[in-house]
Simulated scan of single mutants.
Amino acid sequence: MAVRAVRGAVQLERDDAGHMRDQVGELLTVVLERNGLTADDLISIWFTATPDLHSDFPAAAARDLGIVDVPLICAQELDIAGAMPRVVRLLAHVETDLPKSAVAHVYLGAAAALRKDIAQ
């Protein structure tokens, strides 16, 4: 079993706590599904949010999904001129038998434009 990192992102339509929890919850669910993972495979998740998001902690969505015994942390993205607004990103460390080349990084909706080279 190897430790791998999985990336993901989603752009929110608005800064609203319920919307954030729904969208980040969907992102986490898709990351797990596309990589054949369960919550037991998670080691930790690092969330970032752009500076224009204030309504909630992205990690709250993981707790809503029942991910309660995994270390989570939230941080703010750099405030770069011209950067895509209202984006939540994640970096999940997981235990998996997948080779690096088979890890599915997930960029939902408009966030796919952030990493066209690895978005699946």
Results as ranks from 00 to 15, higher is better:
residue 2 A to T: 10
residue 4 R to I: 04
residue 7 R to H: 08
residue 8 G to S: 06
residue 11 Q to Y: 06
residue 12 L to H: 02
residue 12 L to Y: 01
residue 13 E to D: 15
residue 16 D to T: 01
residue 19 H to V: 09
residue 19 H to P: 04
residue 21 R to E: 10
residue 21 R to T: 08
residue 21 R to A: 03
residue 24 V to Q: 04
residue 25 G to Y: 00
residue 25 G to S: 05
residue 29 T to P: 11
residue 30 V to C: 03
residue 30 V to I: 09
residue 31 V to H: 00
residue 33 E to V: 14
residue 33 E to I: 12
residue 34 R to Y: 08
residue 35 N to C: 05
residue 35 N to E: 03
residue 37 L to E: 02
residue 40 D to R: 12
residue 41 D to Y: 06
residue 42 L to A: 05
residue 42 L to R: 01
residue 44 S to W: 00
residue 45 I to H: 00
residue 45 I to L: 00
residue 46 W to L: 08
residue 49 A to Q: 09
residue 49 A to T: 09
residue 51 P to F: 09
residue 52 D to E: 11
residue 52 D to Q: 06
residue 53 L to K: 00
residue 56 D to Y: 01
residue 58 P to Q: 05
residue 58 P to A: 07
residue 59 A to M: 13
residue 61 A to F: 02
residue 61 A to G: 09
residue 62 A to C: 07
residue 63 R to C: 01
residue 63 R to H: 12
residue 63 R to F: 10
residue 63 R to P: 01
residue 63 R to Q: 13
residue 63 R to M: 11
residue 66 G to N: 05
residue 67 I to K: 02
residue 71 P to A: 14
residue 71 P to H: 14
residue 72 L to K: 00
residue 72 L to F: 07
residue 72 L to I: 03
residue 74 C to M: 10
residue 75 A to C: 08
residue 75 A to V: 12
residue 76 Q to M: 13
residue 76 Q to H: 10
residue 77 E to C: 11
residue 77 E to L: 08
residue 79 D to C: 10
residue 79 D to S: 09
residue 80 I to T: 15
residue 81 A to P: 14
residue 82 G to M: 08
residue 84 M to C: 08
residue 84 M to V: 10
residue 85 P to R: 04
residue 90 L to H: 02
residue 92 A to K: 13
residue 93 H to T: 11
residue 94 V to I: 15
residue 95 E to Y: 12
residue 97 D to S: 07
residue 98 L to W: 07
residue 98 L to H: 12
residue 100 K to C: 13
residue 103 V to T: 08
residue 103 V to Y: 01
residue 103 V to F: 03
residue 104 A to K: 15
residue 105 H to T: 09
residue 105 H to P: 05
residue 109 G to M: 07
residue 111 A to V: 12
residue 112 A to K: 15
residue 115 R to F: 11
residue 115 R to Y: 14
residue 115 R to G: 04
residue 116 K to H: 13
residue 116 K to A: 13
residue 119 A to F: 08
